[in-house]
Design a protein around this nucleic acid. Structure first.
Lengths: 114, 114
DNA sequence: ACAGCTACCTTGCGTCACAAGGTACCAACT
DNA sequence: AGTTGGTACCTTGTGACGCAAGGTAGCTGT
């Protein structure tokens, strides 16, 4: 039926997810499995592990997060992720960009340069 | 430098663009070239023709827009696009979805089933 | 005739969500 | 001891799509 709409939703997630993850990590450190359940419970998202684990790898490769292993008394060890300074910087840039996007028609000129 | 951020912006566009285009067409009919310049001038977007033409094709294939050729006295003929009823419906669904996404922590339960 | 604008469309590339599948560790029941 | 079920990690293959670059064609001015 609405192939188109469903596909659109997937595309929207691509942008939103990374932002949401960084946002979440800005609050406190978390491990991936925790994030999966958190996001899956959120309104429009509903991601699975296959989405998040590669995402976390990308974040780490790009230096936005750092990870730390912690053993658990009940279950496998957890890999906790924290934001690096670059991660915080990128998050701020994202926030700014999204702010611009949501402003309906007001482009807002940059510091009146030139 | 910020490969990651730039890439992210590209991903965000994927979701935003289709919504913006439908929004724009909901106002009045437009032709593709017009949309390109309109979007390119908007804050965070900056798309090119190579992005928009395939997008318009997809919209037409999915029955969200209809097109109509109109000759121009100055230049090539223009293909004007209008929203179909399905297009309007999809736009409404998108608006709803985005509304849900932006609600910070309020999932809004579905009819309290179960 | 030629440059430049409008206006349409296509090809090749790279990125990414997602489903599905895989490994391993631990607790509880049979 | 074996099986189930939960936690927690990660990989592979597929399909979708933005984008740069390139292509076609009509009109205008020099």
């Amino acid at each position: 039926m609405d192939d188109f709409f469903n596909n659109w939703v997937v595309q929207v997630r691509k942008g939103v997810l990374e932002h949401r993850v960084l946002r979440s990590l800005a609050e406190r450190e978390r491990y991936a499995y925790e994030l999966v359940r958190e996001m899956a419970a959120a309104p429009g998202l509903g991601l699975s592990e296959g989405t998040l684990y590669p995402l976390m790898s990308r974040l780490r490769l790009n230096g936005l997060v750092a990870s730390r292993l912690e053993e658990s008394t009940s279950g496998p060890a957890r890999k906790y992720y924290t934001l690096t300074p670059e991660g915080r910087q990128t998050l701020a840039a994202m926030d700014h960009f999204l702010g611009e996007l949501n402003r309906p028609e007001g482009p807002k000129r940059e510091g009146g340069s030139r």
